Simulated assay, not measured.
Amino acid sequence: MGYARRSTALVVENDEAQRTLVSLLLEESEMDVIECESAEAAILVLEESGNNVSMVFTDIELAGMMDGVELACLARQRYPDLKVIVTSGAPRVRRLPDGTLFMAKPWSPIDILRVAEQALH
């Protein structure tokens, strides 16, 4: 019997404590996690292994030149089936690409587990 491949989540967040928390929650949901603190690093991951990534969880504020909205746009263009969640402590100001979910901070751990569930199905 073959093993089902685990889904991979890409967590892009410049705040290390938040990045670690989201990663731990997603690992609880049986997902492999790749952590990045900038959109540029996340794009490199997607270029190398985008077909294995089933979910991107990104903050709007990131280290580097690009923000999470730009990352969401690029990710959705290249991988239309990718589940993209954008989070921010600030009110949403710019339009997000179609099919992208916005989660206002502070979110609760159950919110993260819920989106992970959806990404797995």
Rank of each mutant, 00 (worst) to 15 (best):
residue 15 D to R: 02
residue 58 T to K: 00
residue 26 L to Y: 08
residue 48 E to R: 08
residue 103 M to W: 02
residue 16 E to F: 11
residue 22 V to Y: 03
residue 92 R to W: 05
residue 58 T to D: 02
residue 77 Q to Y: 14
residue 30 E to C: 06
residue 110 I to E: 14
residue 117 E to A: 08
residue 19 R to I: 04
residue 113 L to M: 07
residue 9 A to S: 02
residue 80 P to V: 06
residue 5 R to K: 14
residue 77 Q to G: 09
residue 59 D to G: 13
residue 91 P to S: 05
residue 12 V to P: 09
residue 48 E to C: 01
residue 109 P to Y: 00
residue 83 K to R: 10
residue 56 V to L: 08
residue 72 A to R: 06
residue 100 T to A: 10
residue 76 R to G: 01
residue 3 Y to Q: 09
residue 67 D to Y: 04
residue 107 W to T: 08
residue 14 N to S: 14
residue 51 N to L: 05
residue 119 A to C: 07
residue 114 R to M: 11
residue 2 G to L: 10
residue 93 V to K: 13
residue 121 H to L: 09
residue 110 I to Y: 11
residue 94 R to N: 12
residue 94 R to P: 01
residue 111 D to F: 00
residue 64 G to N: 07
residue 119 A to M: 04
residue 42 A to I: 03
residue 15 D to S: 03
residue 76 R to V: 08
residue 105 K to P: 08
residue 65 M to C: 05
residue 43 I to M: 15
residue 15 D to N: 11
residue 112 I to E: 06
residue 36 C to T: 10
residue 84 V to C: 11
residue 115 V to Q: 10
residue 96 L to Y: 06
residue 37 E to L: 01
residue 57 F to N: 00
residue 60 I to A: 07
residue 112 I to A: 02
residue 47 E to S: 06
residue 77 Q to S: 15
residue 68 G to V: 01
residue 26 L to R: 04
residue 17 A to N: 06
residue 4 A to C: 02
residue 120 L to G: 11
residue 48 E to M: 06
residue 86 V to S: 01
residue 56 V to M: 00
residue 83 K to P: 00
residue 12 V to Y: 05
residue 32 D to M: 11
residue 79 Y to Q: 07
residue 2 G to R: 14
residue 97 P to S: 04
residue 62 L to P: 13
residue 31 M to Y: 04
residue 59 D to T: 07
residue 117 E to L: 05
residue 54 S to F: 01
residue 54 S to D: 04
residue 109 P to S: 00
residue 112 I to K: 00
residue 19 R to K: 07
residue 23 S to M: 03
residue 3 Y to S: 12
residue 10 L to S: 10
residue 69 V to W: 12
residue 111 D to S: 07
residue 74 L to G: 07
residue 85 I to V: 15
residue 76 R to Y: 01
residue 117 E to Q: 13
residue 116 A to E: 06
residue 2 G to V: 11
residue 15 D to E: 15
residue 24 L to T: 03
residue 40 E to R: 08
residue 110 I to D: 14
residue 15 D to L: 05
residue 65 M to T: 14
residue 30 E to A: 10
residue 118 Q to I: 12
residue 96 L to N: 05
residue 37 E to P: 00
residue 67 D to P: 02
residue 27 E to G: 06
residue 28 E to K: 10
residue 69 V to Y: 11
residue 61 E to H: 14
residue 109 P to L: 02
residue 86 V to L: 02
residue 121 H to I: 05
residue 4 A to E: 14
residue 116 A to K: 03
residue 76 R to M: 08
residue 23 S to L: 00
residue 23 S to T: 04
residue 88 S to Q: 05
residue 70 E to H: 13
residue 85 I to G: 12
residue 44 L to D: 15
residue 46 L to N: 00
residue 63 A to V: 09
residue 98 D to P: 14
residue 67 D to G: 04
residue 28 E to N: 12
residue 13 E to K: 03
residue 77 Q to V: 14
residue 1 M to R: 13
residue 46 L to E: 00
residue 29 S to G: 13
residue 32 D to K: 12
residue 44 L to N: 15
residue 116 A to R: 04
